[in-house]
Design a protein around this nucleic acid. Structure first.
Lengths: 318, 318
DNA sequence: CGGCCGTTTGAGCCACATCAACCGGGGTGG
DNA sequence: CCACCCCGGTTGATGTGGCTCAAACGGCCG
């Protein structure tokens, strides 16, 4: 709220200036205050990037997206904004003006690693878009065990389905520090009426995530542990690739415990299966990095077919 | 196509007349021809019911639905049409005119038991609505094993998600003889533009089904066989109830093999678990009927909470 | 009446869970 | 700067839920 007010009248350069000030101030501080300042700085930088993008009405960036460039080349556009824009253009097939309409009513917020974003059972959260970091949707059972039912990468909407149902069926929390845009229902509803393409885009995202959940159902129901793990790694690699990251070696913030909570396996068993994959020279996963040595082999082990992740056909008839 | 043409100019009574003729003709025939005639008769009867409903513009029925009557009372409305209308009113929150707009471009078709409705991997099917019978969405793996990823009861849309993605991620086939409405994309697209409430309704249905799949993920990942089976039975009982059927004792067309394909269990084990539930006097399942003796106990065993199935809160802010 | 499909029952086995201990690194407090 | 601790990863031993294979049973349909 404070940020919204502070930001309203500022130019891009002023915002950057303010952010820089906070960063230098943070240099001389310690602990809690320091993180607070850094947090504010990062938000200000994000708003600066956002405003810069808004002002330059970057038709080229969007047109390039529409032409299906596999990765957006390095741009003045912020790394925090870029995955979201990629999703807007590629998966959601939104026009520039739709994108601007959405972003103009969005508020940014930082979340720490492991922080709760949405509480299970709460009513009607705003629509949330993940800009950077990674997140998960979880359900905790009576016996304390957890099941992760969905994971989110930069650019993914966190809760299109919950948004339209007006009820949150699961908690959402971060794997790593994350920047999240939130779009309040009160402002979004009228927009959905005016611009059916946005509504359709959110519908499509809901369906896309349901398609992913369907794959999860399949390996949970029918595949042995190694194939499950391999399939999950394939999925994440593909989605990361679409989000613009290197496909063979990238950050991977999940612990083995969390992998187990996704795959329906115990931590111990995840470890052993991971070693099998390592020994078969397919992947390596250590210290928060995933490296894929043999993509073909991994796909094979997972019986993975990336088609369900690719909205290419859908875009064809835009 | 033939039906569409035949039907165009007819009155309700003429349609009923034609249906009756076919039924009497069928009485004197045998085998294939007979089933063909009965099929045609049932379609004609459906169209008659549909037209009757259209003509009487049944505002009362809808208002009653909007007031959350738990079950639509017996009405002149056909049993084939009624579950769909219930869904329209309760879950999808569609106005009468929206309902009429949808139904006026719908074509009916009968499917036999076990027949394939949509082939996995095919592109852009029409939107399909299940009027009567039960259906499943399946994925078949390389080793021949199957996983059922979704089941459909009367009134459920079969493929809202696939429709918006323009790609069918799984096959859909019937459990029992079924009447299905199909709404071609070419006619539906303009309607979605004109009437955003219909688009939102389909989006909502997509989200609703995703919420169910999420529950499936949870028991597949974390719950033992007995709880899985119990949970599935609870879900079906609740959904049947919402569809207007008796809650404690109703038709249940799934074989134990099919239950296994849903629950990720072998047929043998489904059988044993089913016997456990029987011995604990919770349910009985035999000869295609499910009887619930102890609803409380069953919910307990399943750790079942019906909230995720109920669109009540969603409707509150219509 | 015979075949077929769905169900039932038993025996043996394996993938994965559980329990328990140890290791290694990075952050924290003294 | 060191000692500690806590968390994530690793390893081994042991138990078990659910699978597979195999065979028999019962009802339904041709």
């Amino acid at each position: 709220m404070l940020h919204r007010l502070t930001i309203q009248g500022r130019t891009v350069d002023e915002l950057r200036q303010l952010a820089a000030e906070r960063r230098t101030m943070a240099g001389s501080k310690e602990g809690h205050l320091r993180t607070l300042l850094l947090n504010e700085a990062s938000l200000l930088e994000f708003y600066a990037e956002l405003r810069a993008w808004m002002e330059c009405t970057p038709a080229p960036s969007v047109r390039r997206g529409a032409q299906m460039a596999p990765t957006l080349p390095a741009q003045p556009i912020a790394t925090n904004l870029s995955p979201l824009l990629t999703t807007f253009a590629r998966r959601m097939v939104l026009s520039v003006s739709d994108q601007q309409a959405l972003l103009s009513i969005a508020q940014a917020r930082n979340f720490a690693k492991g922080e709760l974003i949405v509480e299970e059972g709460s009513e009607s959260a705003p629509l949330l878009l993940l800009c950077s970091g990674a997140a998960r949707a979880t359900r905790t059972l009576e016996d304390g065990s957890q099941q992760i039912v969905s994971i989110f990468l930069p650019g993914d909407p966190l809760n299109p389905g919950d948004f339209v149902l007006g009820r949150c069926g699961n908690s959402i929390s971060t794997f790593s520090p994350a920047l999240v845009l939130s779009i309040p229902g009160a402002e979004l509803y009228p927009l959905l009426q005016q611009r059916p393409t946005i509504m359709r885009a959110l519908w499509r995202e809901t369906a896309w995530k349901a398609a992913i959940q369907r794959e999860w159902l399949i390996w949970l129901g029918r595949k042995p542990a190694e194939a499950r793990l391999a399939h999950l790694l394939c999925e994440i690699a593909c989605r990361s690739l679409a989000g613009g990251r290197d496909s063979e070696d990238f950050e991977f913030p999940l612990t083995q415990r969390e992998l187990g909570d996704i795959l329906g396996l115990s931590t111990v068993h995840v470890n052993r299966v991971l070693q099998q994959l390592r020994n078969r020279k397919l992947v390596d996963l250590s210290r928060g990095r995933l490296t894929i040595f043999d993509r073909e082999g991994l796909y094979e082990a997972a019986e993975f077919d990336s088609e369900y992740l690719d909205p290419a056909e859908a875009r064809a008839r835009s």
